[in-house]
Design a protein around this nucleic acid. Sequence first.
DNA 1: GCCGCATATTTATCAGACCACTTCCAGGTA
DNA 2: TACCTGGAAGTGGTCTGATAAATATGCGGC
Lengths: 248, 248
Amino acid sequence: MDEIPARNGEAAPQKGTVTQRAIDQIKALIGEGRLEPGERLPTERDLAARLGISRSSMREAIRALTVMGVLEARHGSGIYVTQLEAGDLLETFGVVADLSRGPRLAELLEVRRILESTATALAAARITPAQLAQVEKHLTAMNTTDDPEEILAHDLAFHREITAAAGNDSMAAILEGLSSRTFRARVWRAYQEEGAFTRTRREHAAIHRALVAHDPEAARAAAAAHVGEVEQWLRGQAASPPSDEHQA
Amino acid sequence: MDEIPARNGEAAPQKGTVTQRAIDQIKALIGEGRLEPGERLPTERDLAARLGISRSSMREAIRALTVMGVLEARHGSGIYVTQLEAGDLLETFGVVADLSRGPRLAELLEVRRILESTATALAAARITPAQLAQVEKHLTAMNTTDDPEEILAHDLAFHREITAAAGNDSMAAILEGLSSRTFRARVWRAYQEEGAFTRTRREHAAIHRALVAHDPEAARAAAAAHVGEVEQWLRGQAASPPSDEHQA
DNA sequence: GCCGCATATTTATCAGACCACTTCCAGGTA
DNA sequence: TACCTGGAAGTGGTCTGATAAATATGCGGC
C-alpha cells in the first residue's frame, strides 16, 4: 500500500462524523485499488495517526468495515482486506432477512423465487454428474429422516448445491442470505404443520427430475412453483393474526 | 422495551469478542420484537452497563449496526431503531457493487438483468398513468441534454421509477444498489464506444413502448436486452487489459 | 399561551493504560 | 546442521475517564 497523505494541520473538511469519514476513506483506498484483497493494513494506531483521528474512532470504522465483510481483524496479527468474495460481502444480506417482518418477508421471498428459478434453470444446463450426485445425496437424506433439524439442514444443502451449480457465486450468496437458517426455520415451523410435507417432497422430486434431464425450462418452472408455494402461503398468513412471537 | 437481565457477576460465556456479542444481543432484541422500529434504546452508558461491557465496545457494536442500517444514532438525542425498511437495510448492497471487480461485476450484472427484467415486466402490468408520466419525464429529459452527468441522473431515475412501479420495495432497493457502479461503467462505455448513446436511447424507447402497451413479456424482453447489452460489453472488457484505475 | 435561555442529558471524540494473542528470532540442544 | 524452545516485540481487544458538541427539558418572563 502506498503512503496515505498525513493530513498535517490544514483546514479540516469536517463533513459528517470523523468515523464515517474514516470508513469512506478506507473504502475508497480499496475501491481505487490502493489496497488489494488479502493485503495487510497499517496498524490501528498508524491509521488513526495518519487520518488525524483517535484510535477509538478508527476502531469503530474498522469494526464497521469488518461486519460488512470488507476487512478482517486478526487478534495479535493485524487487519487485512478480505478476498472481497461474494460470500463475505453479502453476508449481511442474511441479517436483512432475519430482521424482516410481514410484507417484506413476502417481498424477499418473491426475489428469491425469481432468482432461484433462474439459478435452477442455469443449473439444469450446466450441472455435472458429481454435483448431481451431491444433490441426490441430500435429497435422499432429507426423505429418510424425521428429525426436523436434519431435514432443514439437508433442504438448505439441496438448494445450495443447485445454486452453486448455476455458476454465479454472487447469486448463490444472495440466495444463501435469503434462505438463512432462522428465516427458513421461522417459515417452516408453521408451514409443515399443514401437511405440506409430502407436497414439498414432490416438488423437490420435480426439480431433481428436471436437473437429471438437463431441462432448463422444466427446472425453472419447478423451482418457481416450489418457492411460490411458500410465498403464497406466507401472503395468506400475513392477513390472519399471528399466533406466537414471530408475528406476520 | 423490557428490562435486559443485568448480568450480575456469574460465569461469563466468553465466546467471540465482547463487541460481537453485543451486536448479536441487540440484533436478537430486535429480532424477538423486544425493540420496535422507531423505538429509542437506552443510552450507550446504560446499554454498556447492562451487558457488562465498556462504553467503547458498546459504541463499536452500535456503529456496526448503524452502518447496517439497523440503528440510527442522533447526536445529543439518543439511539433509535430504524424503520427497518428495505432501503435502509439493503444500502450495503451498493457497497458490494462498488467494491466488486472483474468477474463478480459481471455476476452482479447478471443478477440485475434477471431482477430488472422481471421488475419491468411487473411494472408493465401495474404501472399507473401518473407513474408512467414520471417515466416519460425522465426519458425526454435524458434525450434533450448533452451533459453526461444529467443524462446519468435521468437514466438512473428512469429505471428507478420503473422498478418502483413494480411494487416490490425490497427488489427496488436491491436494484438501486446494483445500479450505481453499473451506470458509471456505462458512462465509461459511452465515452469509448461510439453509437452507444443512440443504442441506449433505442432500448429505452423499447422499454417505454412496452410499458405504455402494458405488455409484460415485451417489457421483460426489452429490459433484459438493455441490461444484457452492458453485461456483454463488460464481459468483453474483462478479457482485455484495463486502461485506468477502474479496471475490469 | 408563547418565547427565550440556562441547564441537564446524550452522543462524539479523544487520550492513555493494560491485557491477550501472534509473530519472530536468538540461543540452546540433539 | 537441524530443530525446538522461550521470551521479547508487535498488534488487536478492552477498559477507564475526561472533554466537546448537539439536543432535550424545564423554568421564568412577557
